[in-house]
């Protein structure tokens, strides 16, 4: 089948097996190696992308489900203000990440910044936990996201909340 969607702001079209994993399409056809195709079972979260604005494990998305959607990978996310905020917050909080999970973790954190409502601490940890890596120091990651929320959302939602 022909799969057409918007990838990192550009219209793309390709022939694919309807059940081919979106993660495979993105890695192998588009060379987008920021996402890893690791567990292929939706467990590790290292293949996350934004699909119509929602953070999803792309290994669990069949190609036909991507038709007509907007897909943003880490390569696209890196050009956003949210990325700049998240990256700076993680660096300043000393929440060092390894080269295997950093892109997914930044996107997970970015999804919190872009959320419609201010997330609670539990919600932050829930989202960060969707990416599994043994390199993460939980309190540092939480601190980084809090800082990112303060700097980017303070005006958006009001500090009183």
């Amino acid at each position: 089948m022909i799969v057409e969607f918007i990838l990192n702001g550009e219209d793309v079209s390709l022939k694919a097996d309807p059940l081919e994993r979106l993660s495979d399409l993105l890695r192998e056809r588009f060379g987008l190696t920021s996402l890893m195709s690791d567990c292929r079972e939706g467990v590790c979260g290292k293949c996350v992308v934004f699909l119509d604005g929602l953070l999803v494990n792309s290994c669990m998305v069949p190609a036909f489900k991507a038709r007509g959607t907007e897909v943003v990978t880490y390569e696209g996310f890196k050009s956003t203000d949210s990325y700049a905020t998240v990256e700076r917050s993680f660096r300043e909080a000393g929440a060092e990440l390894c080269g295997f999970c950093d892109s997914a973790m930044y996107m997970a954190a970015g999804s919190l910044i872009d959320a419609a409502s201010r997330p609670s601490e539990e919600e932050i940890m829930e989202v960060l936990s969707s990416v599994y890596c043994r390199c993460v120091t939980p309190s540092r990651a939480l601190g980084a996201v809090r800082t990112a929320l303060e700097s980017s959302l303070g005006g958006k939602y009001g500090r009183a909340r």
Binding site: E41, V43, E126, S129, Y132, S139
Partner: peptide, 15 residues
């Protein structure tokens, strides 16, 4: 492998 329960950051207690 599927049953191997990975411990997530959200499960960590105060340390």
């Amino acid at each position: 492998f599927r049953r191997y329960g990975l411990w997530r950051a959200k499960d960590a207690p105060p340390i």
